[in-house]
Simulated assay, not measured.
Amino acid sequence: MTKVLIVYASLTGNTRTGAHILEEAFKELDTDVDVLESYDADPFEYEDYDICVVGTYTYGTDADLPDEIVDFYEELEDVDLDGKVYGVFGSGDVFYVGKYCLCVDYFEEQFEKTGAQKGANGIKYNLDPDEEATTNLKSFAKELVAKLEQMN
């Protein structure tokens, strides 16, 4: 059975909501899915999974990584995820023009260093996931599973 690990950081609950939408979507796709908050996770845990997902918000006017996921981000580049699929999603606020959801991009760049294959374009949504974001997250899960099946 395909194993999925979703690691997320959430300050207001918006990214946590996205993580749980994804969790349900992956369950509907007959995968074994685990969800961890970033401060409870170690990036080396991804070695035991087929699909590696990160959810993060973008913090402040400087588009910083949230404090609670910085260590995870920095250690991620040292993990060998060859043969695995990754995806990144996150919440942001469109008020921050030019810096909207930039941490999704940062994590995609970091995953590239691990040898994992990008399974889908990152999902970015404004604040709490609305109906469109929910649909996009469900499609995102399907794309990640399809990419893994294509690779195997």
Results as ranks from 00 to 15, higher is better:
residue 114 T to L: 03
residue 134 T to P: 00
residue 71 D to L: 14
residue 151 M to W: 01
residue 66 P to M: 11
residue 97 V to Y: 14
residue 63 A to K: 10
residue 15 T to P: 10
residue 31 T to A: 10
residue 47 E to A: 13
residue 40 D to S: 13
residue 70 V to Q: 12
residue 81 L to G: 04
residue 99 K to C: 13
residue 45 E to H: 09
residue 18 G to S: 03
residue 37 E to Q: 12
residue 140 F to V: 04
residue 71 D to I: 13
residue 105 D to H: 13
residue 131 E to I: 09
residue 38 S to I: 08
residue 99 K to W: 13
residue 89 F to L: 14
residue 72 F to Q: 08
residue 118 K to M: 09
residue 16 R to C: 02
residue 41 A to S: 11
residue 13 G to F: 11
residue 53 V to L: 12
residue 51 I to G: 06
residue 101 C to Q: 04
residue 77 E to C: 15
residue 106 Y to A: 15
residue 26 F to Q: 00
residue 152 N to P: 02
residue 61 T to E: 15
residue 53 V to T: 10
residue 143 E to C: 10
residue 88 V to M: 07
residue 89 F to I: 13
residue 38 S to N: 10
residue 50 D to P: 09
residue 86 Y to G: 04
residue 39 Y to K: 15
residue 130 D to S: 07
residue 138 K to E: 11
residue 115 G to K: 01
residue 116 A to G: 13
residue 117 Q to E: 10
residue 92 G to L: 12
residue 119 G to Y: 00
residue 42 D to K: 13
residue 97 V to M: 15
residue 43 P to F: 00
residue 59 Y to D: 15
residue 11 L to P: 05
residue 24 E to R: 01
residue 4 V to C: 00
residue 48 D to L: 11
residue 55 G to K: 04
residue 33 V to S: 13
residue 125 Y to M: 00
residue 102 L to I: 12
residue 118 K to F: 01
residue 103 C to H: 07
residue 90 G to H: 11
residue 56 T to P: 01
residue 12 T to D: 10
residue 29 L to V: 02
residue 143 E to F: 04
residue 80 D to E: 15
residue 151 M to E: 04
residue 118 K to I: 05
residue 108 E to N: 13
residue 20 H to K: 06
residue 145 V to M: 01
residue 105 D to R: 08
residue 98 G to N: 08
residue 73 Y to V: 15
residue 60 G to V: 09
